[in-house]
Amino acid sequence: MTEAVPTLAPPIPVKIIVAGGFAVGKTTFVAAVSEIEPLSTEAPLTQMSRGVDDHGRRSTKTATTVAMDFGRITLGADLVLYLFGTPGQGRFQFMWDDLVRGAIGAVVLVDSERLAESFAAVDYFERLGMAFVVAVNTFDGIAAHHLADVRDALALGPGVPLSYCDARDRPSAHQTLIALVQHAVALATA
């Protein structure tokens, strides 16, 4: 027997993915805009190991568990936005498909000193056809590269929004989220 549904309608949950390479500031970004202390959960992911492993097998696919940080922004009584930091980078390629399904889009954070760390994330969202923006984390307000150089290095199409962002700074991170949703709206109306 099903009980009556609580009278107050629950909020609609939506999510944005915060991606990028190792130590690029994903958790800092989530913490800057989240209304709660970021939480962490152990998430199951499928992992593709590249090349040949110790046992001589090629391109093995294994299930693994990674820590995933996330935060929340209440956007009114009937709408709540979750921000999920995607774990996994470097020599492991994680399959984020289950996590990102249904997301509004992704913020790909980039450390301009270590651009290569974020190649995989850019590739992933491009292939998926999901709306994404690239934000160059300036850390101490210092950007090592001009945006045009970053765009070239990441081989970003002209349509992908690219900006600087200080992941520790709430207004800056907030502005990056707005840029992403604007971009998602533009793609949806194109």
Partner: peptide
């Protein structure tokens, strides 16, 4: 029947719909 799960609207669609996107944008602003 001890808990109810409310699935996100996008769970069954490939993209988040425009009306919802605009509400999110308005909410963030």
């Amino acid at each position: 029947d001890l808990v109810i799960v409310y699935l996100p609207p996008a769970a069954s669609a490939s993209r988040v719909d425009l009306v919802l996107l605009e509400r999110v944008l308005q909410g963030l602003r």
